[in-house]
């Protein structure tokens, strides 16, 4: 299945990945090849088959509503690329 550069750009935008023109070209080709392989699933008869999204045991026990100590603010902010000792700081958000 062919995938064009406009589609690659759209998907990259959704995934917040900046791609160079060369990468767009490369991914268009590689994703096209992989999607071509994945097309084989279209031939499998899955009518009346339920999807398997969870492979484990259902009905697990839930957490009781009891507080437990988390991280200190210093710990929470320790790995942040930018913070002001109170909050994480990012480039200004425009709504």
């Amino acid at each position: 299945m062919a995938i064009d550069r406009a589609q690659v750009r759209h998907v990259a935008r959704l995934a917040r990945l900046r791609l160079s023109a060369a990468e767009e070209e490369l991914y268009a080709a590689q994703l096209g090849a992989v999607l071509g392989y994945l097309e084989r699933l279209a031939a499998v008869d899955v009518s009346s088959v339920e999807p398997l999204s969870f492979a484990g045991d259902e009905g697990s026990s839930l957490r009781e509503d009891v507080a437990r100590s988390g991280l200190s603010r210093e710990q929470a902010l320790a790995a942040a690329p930018q913070h002001d000792a109170q909050a994480f700081v990012v480039p200004r958000i425009i709504e």
Binding site: L41, V44, V46, V49, L52
Partner: peptide, 15 residues
């Protein structure tokens, strides 16, 4: 539907 959902159904068949 064509990709993710179908793949999860095939997963059921494999199991």
């Amino acid at each position: 539907d064509a990709y993710y959902l179908r793949a999860q159904k095939v997963r059921t068949l494999i199991r």
